[in-house]
C-alpha cells in the first residue's frame, strides 16, 4: 500500500510539472509559429509552419524599427540601471551608518515613494513632463523610471550594508582615509554581491516598461521595445505576424543575458522580496 501511494503521488507530481512547463512554453511556441507563417497561411497556430516565412521579421525590422527600439531600450535601461545602482549605493550609506532621527524619517518617506503606483500619478507626471520638455526624450523616461526603482535599491543596499561590520571601515578611518576614499576603496567593493541582484531587479522592469513609456515616448525615434511591440497590435488593425516577430526579437537580448546569468536572476528575485 505505501509503495503504491508513493508511486501514484510521483506520477501526479510529474503530470503537474509537465502541465506547468507546457503552460509556460505554450505562448512562446504559438508566437514562433505565428511569426514564421505568412498572413495567407490559414493553418492553426498550433501547427508548426512547413516553410519558414521571414516576411514578418522583415516587417518588424523595416517598418516597425524594432532594432531602433532595442537600441533605445538599451540606452534607457543602461542609463537607468546605472543611475539606480550609483544613487542607491550612495544614499544607502548615510541612511545605514548615520541612524539619526532625521534619517529615519527620510527612510520612511522613501518607503512611501515605493508605494506610489506609477499610473496613480499619470496625469500630473505627464503634464509636468510636457511643461519641462521631457516628452520624447531619453532623460524624461529614464529619470521617471529611476525614481520608480530607486527605493527598492536603497532598501536592499541598506539591508546589506547593515549586515557588514563597521569595523572594516573604522580601520581605514583610523588610517586617515577620508569619506570618499573609504566609500570607494571599502564600502562599494563590499556591496558587490548584492549589486547583481539590484541591477536585475531594476534593469528587467525598466527594459520591459510599458505603462508610462507608451505615453512619454510616442515618437518612433526614441520609442523603446514594449510600446513599439504594441504599435503592431491594436484590436482593430492588428498585424499579429509582425507583432509576434517583433516580440520574439525584443525578447532575444534579455534571453541571452538570462542564459548566462540565470543564477543571479533567481537569487535576485528572492533577495529583493525577502531582503
Amino acid at each position: 500500500m505505501p509503495m503504491f501511494t508513493k508511486r501514484a503521488s510521483k506520477i501526479v507530481l510529474g503530470v503537474l510539472i509537465a502541465v506547468a512547463v507546457i503552460a509556460q512554453l505554450l505562448p512562446f511556441y504559438i508566437s514562433l509559429t505565428t511569426a514564421f507563417k505568412s498572413r495567407t497561411d490559414l493553418s492553426s497556430r498550433l501547427v508548426p509552419p512547413h516553410t519558414l516565412y521571414l516576411g514578418n521579421f522583415a516587417e518588424a525590422i523595416n517598418d516597425g524599427g524594432i532594432f531602433r527600439a532595442i537600441l533605445n531600450s538599451l540606452i534607457v535601461t543602461g542609463g537607468g540601471t546605472l543611475l539606480v545602482l550609483v544613487l542607491g549605493a550612495l544614499a544607502a550609506y548615510p541612511l545605514t551608518r548615520l541612524r539619526t532621527r532625521t534619517n529615519r524619517i527620510v527612510l520612511a518617506l522613501i518607503l512611501v515613494m515605493m508605494m506610489v503606483p506609477p499610473l496613480s500619478i499619470l496625469v500630473p507626471l505627464y503634464s509636468m513632463l510636457v511643461d519641462i520638455g521631457g516628452i520624447n526624450t531619453y532623460w524624461g523616461i529614464t529619470l521617471t523610471l529611476v525614481a520608480e526603482h530607486l527605493p527598492l535599491a536603497i532598501f536592499m543596499y541598506s539591508a546589506f550594508l547593515g549586515s557588514v561590520p563597521y569595523s572594516l571601515e573604522e580601520a581605514a578611518a583610523l588610517d586617515g582615509a577620508g569619506l570618499f576614499r573609504r566609500l570607494y576603496n571599502i564600502v562599494f567593493p563590499l556591496l558587490k554581491p548584492v549589486t547583481a541582484s539590484v541591477a536585475i531587479l531594476a534593469g528587467v522592469p525598466i527594459w520591459n516598461e510599458f505603462a508610462l513609456s507608451v505615453y512619454i515616448l510616442n515618437d518612433q525615434s526614441v520609442r523603446t521595445i514594449a510600446p513599439t511591440v504594441s504599435t503592431f497590435f491594436s484590436q482593430s488593425t492588428s498585424n499579429l505576424g509582425a507583432a509576434s516577430a517583433a516580440s520574439l526579437l525584443a525578447f532575444v537580448p534579455i534571453l541571452l543575458v538570462y542564459l548566462f546569468l540565470q543564477r543571479y536572476f533567481m537569487e535576485g528575485a528572492a533577495a529583493g522580496a525577502i531582503k
Binding site: 512562446f28 520591459n208 510599458f210 521595445i225 504594441s230 497590435f233
Partner: peptide, 13 residues
C-alpha cells in the same frame, strides 16, 4: 522576464 505587453500579445494569439 518577458515584458507583460509581449506576454499579453502572445496570449492574445
Amino acid at each position: 522576464l518577458v515584458s507583460p505587453v509581449i506576454m499579453g500579445t502572445m496570449y492574445y494569439l
